[in-house]
Amino acid sequence: MWALVYILNEDRYLTEVLEALLEIGVPGASILDSVGMLQFLSQEIPIFAGFRSILKGSKPYNKIILSVIRDQELLQQALATIDLTVGGIENGKRGILFTLPVEHLIGPGPETLGD
């Protein structure tokens, strides 16, 4: 059993990544908002829309996609799919993707995680 963690820099890819994962048979995932360290420290520099930046901060958040995958083959497939969907994680600087082994899973199981 593996946990797949993908910190996606540009949330415009989110829907596509999720759809692609669903297509290859990853049954579920959780999505979290997160802020990068540098993002947190640096303030947005406004030009035309300062009002927005003082109230909401105009930088979009990163998204963390979190999923538990039972089978090694599916995991490999998921990694390849994500890479393809965002046009090469490394090439496009589109976040960080890593996996962790999962020892215990208590709860409804990976099939329903995130639903």
Binding site: D83, L84, T85, V86, G87, G88, N91, G92
Partner: peptide, 9 residues
């Protein structure tokens, strides 16, 4: 092997 970048773009 740089197809993916351009395909997405």
């Amino acid at each position: 092997g740089k197809g993916a970048f351009y395909e997405t773009t």
